[in-house]
Structures are given as C-alpha cells and as structure tokens.
Simulated scan of single mutants.
Amino acid sequence: MPLRLLLVSDTHVPKRARELPAQVWDAVESADVVFHAGDWVNPELLDRFEQRSRQLVAVYGNNDGPEIRRRLPERQYVVLEGVRFAVVHETGPAKGRNERAEALFPESDVLVFGHSHIPWDATSPGALRLLNPGSPTDRRRQPFCTYMTATVDGGILGHVQLEVVRKQ
C-alpha cells in the first residue's frame, strides 16, 4: 500500500489568510505523512497540524518567530519506504537552484522546500528531485494557490500532483 504524502509550505496564517482552506485540512487528514516547508507564522497553526497529521515532517521559515524556531529545526530529514527526503524553507534564487541543492543535500533523493510561493518540480543533474508546493493561502504572482500530493511505494516517489486550492 503506497504512502500518501501532502507537501505544503508558506501557509502564513493569519497574515495572508485567516484560516487554512478546508480542502487543505482534508488533505492533511487523509495523508500518511505531511511535509511543511516553513512560514507558519502562528504557533497555533503548528499545534493544529501536529494534532491532525498522522506524521508531520516540518521546518521553520524566515517569517517564523522564536516559538516556532524553538519547536522546529531549520532542516529536517526522513526516510520513507527507502526514499530519503530533506526539508528546508529557503534554497536561494531559481538560477542554479538544482545544482546548488544537489551539493547541499547529497544524501537525499527528494528535497521539499518553500519560500518563493512558486511551485517547482525539477530534477537535478544528479537525480535529486526538488519540490516546492507553492502556497495554499498566498498565490503571489501565480494564478492559483497550491499544494502538492505524492505517493511513495517500494522505494519510489510516485505520482507528484500540483493541487489547486478551490475558491471557498
């Protein structure tokens, strides 16, 4: 049975949105593992993710204050079904990102990151998969707010899907 993954970042509650969309909460509750790549802003949102997630793999972002930084690391690593994941908030500019990330995370198969609010799905020359789910609450220059879902089964990262947040 494949593991169902949810990838989310840059929730910015309550600064960019008063609440996380119900669609995203439904995805949190149906996922086996939830990744959050930082910029929570509110510690209560972290509490709610911890309560509602089966397994949470999370880091702090540049907009997170001392309480969140006390509770979460800057980088997080986890192995799921043989796939080695790393999570970090920032990876720097888009130019050179794939090669830079490959050098910074040489022992990882997948890097989940955030910060830009711009979805990213790319593979580095050395086969590191880089995934940025965008933001479910602040689309910035994007047409929609987004997050990602994926699966892991038998040591393989399965179908990665960019999900669009529907208007509530």
Rank of each mutant, 00 (worst) to 15 (best):
T137A: 02
P21L: 06
L45T: 01
G154C: 02
V110A: 07
P43V: 02
E67Q: 12
V28W: 00
G134A: 00
R54P: 01
A17C: 10
R18S: 06
W40E: 05
E107N: 14
R100P: 03
A150I: 00
R18Q: 06
L131A: 07
L6A: 05
W25A: 04
L72K: 05
E81I: 00
G155D: 09
V110H: 08
V8Q: 00
Q51R: 14
L128K: 00
V59F: 08
A86Q: 02
C145K: 12
S108W: 03
A122N: 14
P73N: 08
Y147M: 06
P73F: 04
E90Q: 10
R18H: 02
Q23C: 02
G155N: 11
G154W: 05
G92K: 04
L72R: 11
E163H: 10
R139W: 15
E102R: 10
S124T: 12
N132Y: 13
T123S: 11
N98G: 11
F35V: 04
V79R: 15
N63M: 14
D32W: 00
P136Q: 08
E19Y: 01
P143V: 07
T123H: 08
V112D: 05
E99R: 11
Y77S: 10
T137C: 00
Y147C: 06
D153N: 12
S135E: 09
L3V: 08
L45P: 05
R70Y: 11
G158M: 12
